[in-house]
């Protein structure tokens, strides 16, 4: 069920959908706990875990030292010995502090041990630019994670999807990174009150169309949808797909769409070189080459750190106008 198909009902903003997802994950699983920097007393620097300490107490909602290696190591050790850790890495940029624990321990333990360990670990982290937080608090590093066998990666960009992604991850016996978008914190959406999950590895078709497939993830799904509105006024019908799960990736939905539209444009906020979009473009080229009327296009951030000054940051982050312009170029209408 996509956000568009969700029954009309209660509205929640993205941040409160996060809170509700974690709350319900903790409610339904006594072996689950939440740990991270300032997640308990402060309810997180983003306010996304407010109230959880009061409801579940300090044994289950735990402030850690500022120790990202320690946090992921805690999750690996606790997960391998029977608990269901939900841990928070405040800003995604901080995964640099714990890449060994993520890449060499969390992702690989099960395989290295011949399938004799299970790592039911959920990692929540906030990505993306748009708040003038500069180069170390604004990155979209999902490609680093998607390149690591053993991890699952979901990047929810609606209130509905973020709650569902958290509950799905918490119930999953594998390590799942829920990469959240700080630029969407105030975004409202329909969110059912009961717990629900998302099908792992299933894309959302946000909008159907005939002339061009735009594959966008994270915050860019909203820019892609705006671009589709603009292009509609020009007589161009755009299909917008949010893979949602970047690992595993729903290749079938993307290929089926391109087979219909004959044109493809991949969009993300992360740096273009080596981004997830490069993999998606390569898969389209491999699997749908004969259907393509033009080379696959990409709109993504340039090869630069995220700049601080608002004027530079706005230039850096892709937007609907740039997506629309690239669409026109691909279709030869621009």
């Amino acid at each position: 069920m996509t956000a568009a198909e969700a029954p009309a009902g209660r509205q929640l903003v993205y941040t409160l959908a996060i809170t509700e997802g974690v709350r319900q994950a903790l409610q339904e699983e006594p072996l689950a706990f939440m740990a991270g920097e300032d997640v308990a007393g402060a309810g997180s620097v983003f306010g996304i875990y407010r109230g959880l300490l009061d409801e579940f107490g300090p044994d289950r909602v735990i402030d850690t030292p500022i120790s990202e290696s320690g946090i992921i190591g805690l999750a690996v050790g606790a997960g391998a010995t029977g608990l269901k850790p939900i841990v928070d890495i405040m800003f995604m940029d901080f995964i640099g502090e714990c890449m060994d624990e993520i890449v060499n321990q969390l992702a690989k333990m099960r395989y290295m041990f011949g399938g004799k360990a299970t790592l039911p670990v959920t990692v929540l982290t906030m990505s993306g630019a748009g708040m003038n937080l500069a180069a170390q608090h604004s990155q979209s590093l999902e490609a680093w994670l998607c390149h690591t066998p053993g991890l699952k990666v979901v990047m929810p960009a609606t209130a509905y999807d973020v709650k569902g992604a958290i509950i799905t991850a918490a119930r999953e016996p594998n390590p799942v990174f829920v990469v959240m978008c700080k630029g969407l914190m105030a975004l409202p959406g329909e969110v059912p009150e009961e717990p629900y999950t998302l099908p792992i590895g299933k894309a959302n078709v946000l909008r159907e169309g005939d002339n061009l497939t735009v594959v966008a993830h994270g915050r860019m799904i909203h820019e892609a949808t705006k671009a589709a509105d603009i292009l509609e006024g020009e007589g161009i019908s755009v299909e917008v797909i949010d893979p949602l799960w970047l690992q595993p990736l729903d290749t079938d939905t993307i290929i089926n769409s391109v087979s219909k539209t004959h044109n493809a444009l991949v969009v993300h906020e992360a740096v273009r070189f080596g981004g997830v979009g490069a993999e998606i473009a390569a898969q389209i080229a491999e699997l749908a080459f004969d259907y393509l009327d033009a080379p696959v296009g990409r709109v993504a951030a340039p090869f630069s750190p995220v700049p601080f000054s608002p004027v530079l940051e706005q230039t850096y982050v892709p937007n609907a106008e740039r997506i629309a312009a690239e669409a026109r170029r691909i279709l030869g209408t621009g």
Binding site: G77, A78, T81, G82
Partner: peptide
């Protein structure tokens, strides 16, 4: 036995996680 480990000092954080489980359980 939660594994030999090719990464130096990778074990202590994992052991802390196991100990957290032990206390929790």
């Amino acid at each position: 036995m939660l594994g030999a480990n090719g990464i130096v000092a990778a074990g202590p954080p994992i052991a802390v996680g196991a100990a957290f489980s032990n206390k929790y359980l």
